[in-house]
Design a protein around this nucleic acid. Structure first.
Length: 441
RNA sequence: GUGGGUGUAGCUCAGUUGGUUAGAGCACCAGGUUGUGGCCCUGGGGGGCGCGGGUUCAAAUCCCGUCACUCACCCCA
């Protein structure tokens, strides 16, 4: 035998074994169902994009973290960094797509990052976006979807933080710090939660911003009161900036719309410190944070009215959010939010008593499968003991035994693995019996 | 890219001031139970201590190097 190859996996990438996949699919199905309930339609795009498509969209950091290589034809290509840029490319390539275009997309993305807790190099994102609507209603739809998904998944404590890039740029404009340092300033502001006002002040000073500008920025950041009051105050402080004023006006409209959806006010908040890292945002930005496991944001997004224009030459308003599947799963695992018994997709294992009785077992499995019951027919070589062991290891809730006695009377013996109870049921009643156990419990 | 931590059976880890054939739990295999698992009992297989070098009569235990993994920063889902 040749020397064994040490089985290893690429750092930051993962295998999802069946018990994990069942849970992942559970979450994905809920997300997908809500997306479709709100009238969004599916889209998929290639893993690999031309480098020119990906580069320069996310900012310096984003470029650095994008997997990049040359293919055999010496073409510069990369693995997609997110799902928003590919969407923008698609919208520009297919102008005939009816607008507003509401699409959702659930696919993996890649980042050449150092893996950490809740952080991978290959991971799934679930994006929902609306292209072709400049209305705050589009942003409200996105936020409503996020709320509903988290609700159905039974998240109890989370906050959807909302801000606007226009408000932020208005702040920079009014402060006199200089627009060329805009993004650096955002990054500093974004750290407020972690490093506090003093920390932010230090960060800003490092950027060689005039003392007076630092003071003005901090004054704005320190606005207090209810969301409405803070927006009001912000409007006053940003009076000198057209962008800032427009940003505030948009947020006021957005919050008005949100109040029309049935979202409790405690679940979302105007947060002037929210900045978000990507360069392409132009309007409202939002992200969801949970406190319980300190894992950062579980969703993130915003409006990007100029991105599509980079591909089509004609700008197109767009807004949307990414729902972070991996982090949602991490939180749900840690808080034990998954329904119990969510370990297998199989409902029943049909055993094979011996070679002679195999036809009978096949017949039984066929009957169950025809009825739409997920049925495993044992294909191994073990005796009944081993077959029960397998059902146990795989968490299959029911085992059907069809031995000589059962065959003689045209029945099947069904064992409930959780309770240990067994019952012999006639073949005609089998489907109904198993269905009732699997659904009811 | 920067800093810290760890590397002993498939997994989680223990291994006293360096000293005889390196341990436990879980997992795995077999039997107790040739129509039934999960519990229990009995027995068994499996590593030579990430790798390379050094010190020593003697190293998993000390030193140097190297690799890998991991946590944090940065940034982000």
């Amino acid at each position: 035998m040749a020397q064994k190859i040490e089985p290893r996996i690429f750092k930051g990438a993962r295998d999802f074994l069946p018990p994990q996949m069942v849970r992942r699919n559970y979450v994905i199905n809920i997300i997908k169902t809500v997306f479709e309930k709100y009238g969004f339609e599916p889209l998929e795009t290639p893993t690999i994009e031309l480098w020119e498509t990906l580069s320069g969209k996310y900012g310096e950091e984003g470029d650095r973290l994008t997997y990049r290589f040359t293919d055999r034809g010496d073409r510069e290509v990369g693995l997609r960094y997110d799902l928003t840029v590919p969407l923008s490319r698609v919208v520009a390539m297919y102008p005939q797509i009816p607008k507003p275009f509401k699409r959702y997309q659930i696919q993996p993305v890649w980042r050449a990052d150092k893996p950490q807790k809740g952080r991978f190099r290959e991971f799934y994102q679930c994006d929902v976006d609306i292209v072709g609507s400049a209305s705050m209603l589009a942003d409200a739809e996105i936020i409503a979807i996020i709320y509903e998904i988290l609700q159905i998944l039974r998240f109890e404590e989370f906050t959807i933080r909302i801000n606007s890039r226009k408000v932020l740029s208005g702040m920079v404009e009014v402060s006199g710090a200089g627009m060329e340092k805009e993004f650096d300033i955002y990054r500093a502001i974004d750290k407020l939660d972690k490093i506090g006002f003093e920390g932010v002040a230090e960060e800003l000073q490092k950027l060689a911003i005039p003392e007076s500008a630092v003071g003005k920025l901090l004054d704005i950041l320190k606005i207090e009161g209810t969301p409405a009051q803070r927006l009001d105050t912000a409007a006053g402080l940003l009076a000198g900036s057209a962008a800032g004023q427009q940003g505030v006006a948009e947020l006021i409209t957005l919050f008005q719309y949100l109040s029309r959806y049935e979202i409790p006010g405690s679940c979302f908040a105007f947060d002037i410190c929210l900045a978000r890292g990507l360069d392409y945002y132009t309007g409202p930005i939002y992200e969801t944070v949970v406190e319980k496991p300190r894992i950062g944001s579980i969703t993130g997004g915003g409006r990007y009215d100029n991105l599509i224009g980079l591909f089509s030459g004609q700008s197109q308003p767009a807004t949307g959010s990414s729902v972070g599947l991996e982090r949602i799963i991490t939180v749900m695992e840690e808080l034990e939010m998954f329904p119990p018994q969510l370990n297998t997709s199989t409902g029943v294992l049909v055993t094979v008593f011996n070679e002679d009785l195999l036809p009978y077992s096949i017949q039984i499995a066929g009957k169950l499968r025809q009825a739409g019951i997920n049925t495993d027919l044992y294909t191994g070589a073990s005796k009944l003991r081993g077959q029960f062991g397998l059902a146990n290891d795989k968490n299959i809730p029911l085992v059907a035994v069809a031995g000589p006695d059962e065959q003689a009377q045209g029945s099947v013996n069904v064992k409930n693995m959780a309770s240990g109870e067994q019952q012999t049921v006639p073949l005609d009643a089998l489907v109904e019996y198993i269905r009732s156990i699997l659904s009811g419990d």
